[in-house]
Amino acid sequence: MYILLILAVTLERLAELVVAKRNSDWSRQHGGTEFGAGHYPVMVTLHSGLLAGCLIEVLALRRPYRPALGRPMLAAVLAAQGLRWWCIASLGRQWNTRVIVVPGASRVVKGPYRLLPHSNYVAVAVEGAALPLIHTAWLTALSFSLANAVLLRVRITVENGALEELT
């Protein structure tokens, strides 16, 4: 079942990339400027590594499923997915996996963004820790979380600079 869950999350990520590509194309057609493109390949590698690590650690190290840990972690993953798609819906065409600012766009302050400026990254952090822990893949959870913290420091700095461009 865990392998099917990782497959489902992978398919969800591919759906995100379809939405991101559509929004990226729209943003560029409307004069959008990308910020921080240099860290994007690192982000893609890290997120791909999370999914691969979940499978590799569980299969290679024969991590057991422990319901007392797995069930709450699954609930956390599902909550993170809900938050992620609430962020995507709230940002509309401004949501992207890249940082692109369209001239004349205004800063979104609805949905989860009325409470927390970088709400999507809460979803990313929760999912990155919880998804591996569903099946006790603690090495993957720890390594992703540490690497993600470093990446988010860069990403949020880039986004905050880009957001200053918005009216």
Rank of each mutant, 00 (worst) to 15 (best):
23 N>F: 13
116 L>R: 06
72 P>F: 08
54 C>P: 08
3 I>H: 11
32 G>D: 08
63 R>L: 11
166 L>A: 10
160 N>W: 10
164 E>T: 14
23 N>G: 07
36 G>T: 14
92 G>H: 01
65 Y>H: 11
28 R>K: 07
141 A>V: 02
6 I>L: 14
67 P>V: 10
119 S>M: 11
52 A>K: 02
124 V>P: 01
159 E>T: 04
16 E>A: 06
86 W>M: 12
102 V>K: 08
116 L>N: 05
162 A>I: 14
111 G>P: 05
162 A>T: 13
127 E>F: 09
30 H>M: 03
131 L>M: 12
133 L>G: 00
97 T>P: 00
4 L>R: 11
101 V>G: 07
124 V>D: 00
25 D>W: 02
64 P>K: 04
143 S>W: 13
163 L>T: 11
129 A>W: 01
150 V>C: 05
84 R>V: 02
25 D>E: 05
60 A>I: 06
15 A>G: 14
56 I>L: 12
165 E>M: 10
72 P>L: 06
24 S>G: 13
49 G>C: 07
59 L>S: 15
148 N>L: 07
154 V>R: 09
111 G>H: 05
145 S>T: 02
6 I>A: 09
113 Y>S: 01
106 S>W: 12
157 T>W: 08
165 E>Q: 15
31 G>I: 10
94 Q>W: 02
137 A>L: 00
152 L>N: 02
145 S>V: 06
137 A>N: 02
15 A>Y: 12
72 P>M: 03
162 A>R: 15
163 L>N: 04
167 T>A: 11
109 V>I: 12
150 V>R: 08
62 R>S: 15
113 Y>G: 04
116 L>W: 13
99 V>N: 01
148 N>C: 06
73 M>S: 05
10 T>P: 10
156 I>Q: 05
35 F>N: 13
123 A>V: 09
